[in-house]
Design a protein around this nucleic acid. Structure first.
Ligand SMILES: [Mn+2]
Ligand SMILES: [Mn+2]
Ligand SMILES: [Zn+2]
Ligand SMILES: [Zn+2]
Lengths: 136, 136
DNA sequence: AATAATTGTGCAACTTTGTTGCAAGTGATA
DNA sequence: TATCACTTGCAACAAAGTTGCACAATTATT
């Protein structure tokens, strides 16, 4: 895939097979992935530590974003072009209690909230848990 | 405190000093606490494992609820009377990037969201990060 | 009040998850 | 192809969470 190299280059990252494989895994499985998921998928090829560092790098560069969860952090691709400077998201995440998958609902964004005086909001994370269409 | 015993009894739990102390810690510090926070506050009196088990018990009984976070789960008191059966929350959580505190905004509830067909929502978690009034 | 049944605690041992330093390997550039 | 900065694997470590079991504390029963 040359698309992968493009993405990495676009974020000023060297092309390495680990980064290509991690990125590719995010693209093919389209749901949010934990470090453990990636270790399961690629752990025979790469060291655990390298996967941790790849995730950290991707986070910093705006290739992926964190997805909150009540039983362990996950990560998902940033669909719009995030960067090191601007790393903004306001879409909803849905976690299915049946299949366990967590997905970005990219085109559903978090409704505005009127906070009390003095609160300066910067970041919003909404996780909805329930049953997804596949499992319903 | 007899209030503590009342609460425990009300949830069909035996009164022990660990449970009283954990509950009391949640009441006095009014923000969301991690296991580590409690270990810091009470760790000389009780074993780490006991604190884990106390949190698990409190969760199951509806005394506390989970608070999502991007760097580790926290817990906070259920203000309205949750129980083993009905354990419902729809209020917003705010995490301050300055002081690090996470608090329940009990009277701000999460706005309704119109999900696409097929999604059956059951639980909502909204974490807003930013600067709190104290630190602003 | 004494005893029995039940539940909670501490300890030890273990697993899982995440971090750090460093030497060797690799990719971009000239 | 030579150079240099960056990336990787490995080892060692630290932090977080789990499990089994003997003993302690609490509650129920007599
Ligand atoms: Mn997302
Ligand atoms: Mn809360
Ligand atoms: Zn599902
Ligand atoms: Zn603050």
């Amino acid at each position: 895939m040359d698309q992968l190299r493009e993405t990495l280059k676009g974020h000023h990252l060297r092309t390495t097979t680990c980064r290509e494989d991690v990125l590719s895994t995010f693209i093919t499985k389209k749901n949010a992935l934990s470090h453990g998921d990636l270790e399961g998928a690629l752990g025979e090829n790469y060291d655990r530590v390298t996967i941790y560092r790849t995730l950290k790098t991707f986070l910093e560069k705006g290739i992926i974003h964190k997805v909150l969860d009540d039983e362990g952090l996950r990560y998902a691709l940033c669909s719009h072009n995030c960067s090191e400077e601007k790393h903004h998201h306001d879409h909803i995440h849905f976690k299915c209690s049946e299949c366990g998958e967590t997905n970005c609902l990219e085109n559903l964004h978090i409704p505005a909230v009127q906070l009390p005086n003095g609160y300066q909001p910067e970041n919003f994370n909404l996780l909805i848990q329930g049953v997804c269409p596949k499992c319903g």
